[in-house]
Simulated scan of single mutants.
Amino acid sequence: MDFGAYLDVFEKILHDPAPKKPYDNPDYFNYAKLNWSRMHRWLKQAKLAPEAQEAVMQVKAPQQWIIITEPWCGDAAHSVPLMELIAAMNPLISVDYQLRDSPPFLIDNYLTNGGKSIPKLIIRNSEGKDLGTWGPRPAECQALYNSLTAEKADFETLKTALQKWYNKDQGQAIMAELTAVIRGSLADKF
C-alpha cells in the first residue's frame, strides 16, 4: 500500500466503534491515537537535513522502499514520516507500506535480534535486490532501550524515556542514519 492507503488504515482504526485486535485493547487504541498525532506533527513540522536531501537526490535508478510498520508503534510515529518525506523528494523511489502483523509477514525475513521490531525500512533495486535496511530505532535510542530493558524498567518508564529522547533529538539521528543507508544503497551498480 502507499502512504495514503496506510493513513486510511490508520484512520479507520481510530474511527472504528468496535476496533479489532489489538486495538480493542484500550492501551493499543490510545497508543494509535497518540501516534496519529505525533506522526502528523512530524509531517507538518519536520525540517529535513540537507545531507538527507542531498543523498536522496543522488538516487539515479529506481528503488523500492518497503516500510514495515503498525499504527500502534511509538517508534514508527517518529521515523515513518521522515522516511516518507525523504522518499517523496525523488520520483525514482516508490514506497510500499506493509503491516507487520498482516500477511505477507515480510518482517519474518528482517528480524532484529530475533524479534519483529518495527519500523523497518528495506531499500531494494528494481530487480528486488536488497541494498540496505534500517530500523527499528536510531542507535542511541536503541542503546537507551537496551539499558532500560536490562534494568527491567516498567513499560511506562520505558515509553516515557524513549519519547523524551525523540523529543530532544528532533529527528536528527533518524535522518543521519537514513542518510547513511541511502548513501550505502548508491554503491550498488545495478
Results as ranks from 00 to 15, higher is better:
Tyr31Phe: 15
Gln45Lys: 14
Pro104Cys: 14
Lys120Pro: 00
Leu85Ala: 03
Gly184Tyr: 02
Pro19Val: 01
Phe29Met: 09
Leu82Cys: 05
Glu84Lys: 10
Ile123Asp: 00
Ala139Lys: 10
Ile182Cys: 05
Phe190His: 13
Val80Glu: 07
Glu51Phe: 03
Gln58Glu: 12
Ile13Tyr: 05
Arg38Ile: 10
Lys21Asn: 05
Asp2Ser: 04
His78Ala: 11
Gln45Arg: 13
Ser126Asp: 06
Asp96Gly: 08
Leu34Cys: 13
Leu7Phe: 08
Ile86Arg: 04
Cys73His: 13
Gly4Cys: 14
Ala49Gln: 12
His15Tyr: 13
Val9Arg: 15
Asp188Phe: 06
Ala55Glu: 07
Pro138Asn: 04
Asn35Pro: 10
Asn109Leu: 11
Phe29Trp: 13
Gly171Gln: 04
Gln64Tyr: 06
Ile67Ala: 07
Thr157Asn: 11
Pro19Tyr: 04
Trp72Met: 10
Asn30Thr: 12
Tyr166His: 04
Lys168Leu: 14
Leu148Tyr: 00
Leu99Phe: 14
Ala150Arg: 11
Asp101Pro: 08
Met89Phe: 01
Glu54Phe: 08
Ala180Val: 06
Tyr166Gly: 00
Arg137Gly: 02
Asp2Gly: 04
Phe155Val: 08
Leu131Asp: 00
Tyr97Gly: 02
Thr112Arg: 02
Leu92Pro: 00
Glu140Leu: 08
Thr160Ser: 15
Leu99Trp: 09
Ala18Met: 12
His15Gln: 14
Glu151Asp: 14
Phe155Trp: 12
Ser37His: 14
Thr149His: 07
Asn25Thr: 03
Leu85Lys: 07
Gly74Tyr: 11
Ile67Gln: 06
Gln142Ser: 14
Arg100Ala: 07
Met175Tyr: 02
Tyr110Asn: 04
Gly114Trp: 04
Asp75His: 08
Glu11Ala: 15
Ile107Gln: 09
Leu162Ser: 05
Ala153Gly: 05
Thr149Ala: 06
Thr112Leu: 06
Thr160Gly: 11
Lys21His: 07
Phe190Tyr: 13
Ile123Val: 07
Trp134Ile: 00
Pro50Leu: 05
Pro104Phe: 12
Ala76Ile: 09
Val59Arg: 01
Phe190Ser: 13
Pro50Glu: 03
Asn146Ser: 10
Asn30Lys: 15
Pro103Leu: 13
Asp188Thr: 00
Pro81Ala: 06
Thr149Phe: 07
Ile68Gly: 00
Ala49His: 10
Lys60Leu: 02
Gln163Lys: 14
Met83Pro: 00
Ala88Leu: 03
Lys47Gly: 08
Thr149Ile: 04
Cys73Thr: 12
Met89His: 04
Ile67Cys: 06
Arg41Gln: 08
Leu106Glu: 07
Ala55Tyr: 05
Ala46Trp: 02
Leu34Asn: 15
Gln172Asn: 09
Ala143Pro: 00
Asn30Tyr: 13
Ile122Asn: 02
Val181Lys: 14
Arg38Met: 08
